[in-house]
Design a protein around this nucleic acid. Sequence first.
RNA 1: GGUCCCGUGGUCAAGUGGUUAAGACACCGCCCUUUCACGGCGGUAUCAUGGGUUCGAAUCCCGUCGGGAUCACCA
Length: 551
Amino acid sequence: MENNYKKLAEAIFPNINKNVEYYENLYSERSKKNNVVTRFAPSPTGYMHLGGLYISLINQSFAHKQNGTFFLRIEDTDQSRILSNGVTEIINTLHNFDINFDEGPINETEDFGEYGPYRQSDRKEIYQTYAKYLIEQGKAYPCFCTKDELEKIRENQNKVGESLIGYGGKYAVCRNLTVNEAIKKIENGESFVIRLKADNNGIKRVTVKDIIRGEINMEDNEIDVVIIKGDGLPTYHFAHVIDDHLMRTTHVIRADEWIPSLPLHLQMFKTLGFKAPQYAHVCPILKLEGDSKRKLSKRKDPEARVGFYFEQGFPIIAVKEYLLNLINSRFELWREKNPELSYKDFDINLNEMSKSGALFDLNKLLNVSKRIIKNMTDEEVFQGILNWSKLYSNNLYQFIIKDENKFKSSIPIWHKNRMDIAKWNEIEKNFDYLYDLNFLQKLNINNEFLNFPYVLEILKDYIESYNQNDEQSVWFEKIKNIANKYNYCVKIKEYKNNPKNYNGSIVDVTTFIRIALTGKKDSPDIYEISQYIKEEEVKKRIKNLIDYLTK
RNA sequence: GGUCCCGUGGUCAAGUGGUUAAGACACCGCCCUUUCACGGCGGUAUCAUGGGUUCGAAUCCCGUCGGGAUCACCA
């Protein structure tokens, strides 16, 4: 019988002449210091998703904080879905987000590391060697069923109310083919896949362990799953088990959609005689649609595409720190206590991760980002804006490089002790009064303060008294004088106590000036703005408002 | 439909049998203040639901409801 299986294995994989021992020796156990080995294993099927970034950040932080190894593996076994620049896209995105892997593909064709190749399409021979080994032992077999036949089996199972749905048990007809029958079919050129015999008869329960969820009680696998597809490449399940064994992965941290196949994977590890890694299944980032939550979708949600964050000009650290909040809510407290440490110093704890998916909260991201920008130096802010505008806003970029120093001098106006900006694309829009040369023509003034008495007089006096060289205190004394002259209260408390005694308060006076200069009621210090835009422009803008109010 | 997972304010969440049920974001108010902010202080608002166990339940057990995942030669 054993010889028969060998004959079958030989008929199926005549060109496979290495054996299992060869690979076991080639990829020997990692040294002790690699007590933690994690990986990120995406498919190169399109632009990277926030969820992918999230998973890779967890894997990287978890491994690196413990001096472990983090590698990248490309899962490209579905030839119909891979994209030509998919690998480059993934590598670039990870690079841009400063997520560094220790081993893996470094471009479309080359790999780096001792446990490669790191793309599954280059590992065909390895998978086939192990498949051949399983066939020799009678643990796997060729299946010649067509799609239609499989469909019929399933229909029938549904009709009968069978609890087993799929190719297993008595429904696994090819399992009973004799070796000679199988060989004959192969010789006749019939197409086939390789299936693994389920290590199970009838429904059994197993308890699987997950770092995040704890113990989970499930039905054991009883399906003879496909391990090698018609094109000779492995399915995800088989590739996962072979790769993570041979690459000596210790912790598989992946999306929670894989929980249902955990019994299968564990069974495969056992059948192959491998030690299984520890698993942590992470829940996805969600989005509210109507009343129900759904996964962030690349199609529907712009924020699902990581490119979105570059385009908007979020500092990448902000995105990562937001994600870290989601990974371990303890991060927030830690960050507050250790404002100067790098996020890389934070200890990720997998069993502190939430068991339910979090809704993506743009507000929170914005806040995290504002705080990070606030804590940057002016120079860092400058570099951030420069790099961003170069790629995404030619207008702003041209404005900056025309006079870098002048632009730099404007940064403290809105940066010092402020949280005005969460992402670089807000600069032009929010600070058009600083950076738009045609600001005056575009200025839109609302007229609600026409109601205040003496607005015109106040503005005229302000133009009259304005002097670019005044110290801030002198400048403000002048405003106070004007306020007094028109009975606008200089002391806010006094005004609040007796508002009826005055035409308004000094707050209103500065608001007139602010609106004239910026078109907004909210803006940074108007003295500093004035210093930046210079006397002529200040007067022009005040005059502009006077003209507007006059007509 | 089968199997599995999850359910604490609007959002992220701490919590493991006794807490006035932390904290952060958002929102509102107050203080500081020449303004806008920053900062400080405070406020609104939560244990899905019904039973049980217990002197005592967000926490343990059972049911219900709700949301999600999965059931491919895709990953």
